[in-house]
Simulated assay, not measured.
Amino acid sequence: MNHQADITRTMSAQGATLDVIQATPAALWGDARDACDEALRQGHAFVAILRGMEAFADDQVLTDEDRQRAARYRQAGDRHNFVLGRNLVHYLVRPRGIATPCRFSIGPRGKPFLPDAPAYNLSHSGRWVACVVSHDDAVGIDVETFARLKDYRDLLGAVTHPVERRCIEQARSEHGLTLFKRCWTRKEAILKATGEGLNDNLQGIDVRLEQHEPVLDHPMPLRLMHLTTDHDEATIALALNPSVPGVVAMFVGEPR
């Protein structure tokens, strides 16, 4: 991986490693694929997080159906994010050397997958697009800029478990919004890992806001992790099987 600017490693309280790679756009797509393959070879999960990479949105690797779907997006940003999501799956998840466009299958709970390939999950918000790849199907990721969020307190009743709500309401005012963002992204990551998507039982899940990296047993065994960036605009949460020993996260964007 010749284009990595920096690599750092941390060890969580649960024993999982987190390797963070800060990379320039030159890492797409060769270095990113090499890092993904090496992570999976070690039994780890790989996360690619793109910021401001609209120029790399290539619809030539999309099916005709997906190109038509992309063309229906009215906002250029939404169109780029959709195409970049398909690009991430094409270049990171599929077996090497396959040039034909991806054709996705849908699992029993509506979660897309590629037959005979690792599991993956996608998320995008604003100029951010993220993809997690793992050999374990129980994996989900959520990236949020919360650009349209007004007063988070209006959502507490619909979103939070009673324990979470007390934690947020008892926090100092400047930390309440941070805790709400943590709560929201953790829940989205969980529900994407389970394949359920957003449902009406958000209040029934306690994501243990007081813990840095909790391991849950409900709605299924999952470790929750947050991936921090040097940009304050995005909150990123990851949910994966607690047995996964580590995560390799590659952030790709223009140098600040």
Rank of each mutant, 00 (worst) to 15 (best):
H3A: 11
I7F: 12
R9Y: 10
T10M: 05
A16H: 08
T17C: 13
D19Q: 09
D19N: 11
I21V: 15
A23R: 01
T24C: 10
A32R: 01
A35V: 04
G43P: 01
H44I: 14
V47E: 06
L50Q: 01
M53E: 05
V61R: 08
V61Q: 08
E65A: 14
D66L: 07
R69G: 10
A70L: 10
A71V: 06
D78I: 13
R79Y: 09
H80S: 13
L84H: 03
V89H: 03
L92N: 01
P95I: 10
P95W: 07
I98Y: 13
A99H: 06
T100V: 15
T100N: 14
P112R: 01
P115I: 09
N121T: 07
S123I: 05
V132Q: 01
V139T: 04
V139G: 01
V139Q: 04
G140C: 04
D142V: 05
V143S: 04
K150D: 15
K150E: 14
G157T: 13
G157C: 10
Q170H: 05
K181R: 12
K187N: 00
I190P: 00
L191E: 02
L191D: 07
G197N: 05
L202P: 02
I205F: 06
L209A: 07
Q211W: 13
E213T: 12
V215N: 08
V215H: 08
H218S: 13
P219S: 07
L222N: 00
T229M: 13
D232L: 14
D232A: 15
A234K: 02
A234F: 08
A237V: 12
L240D: 06
N241I: 14
V247M: 03
F251N: 11
V252N: 03
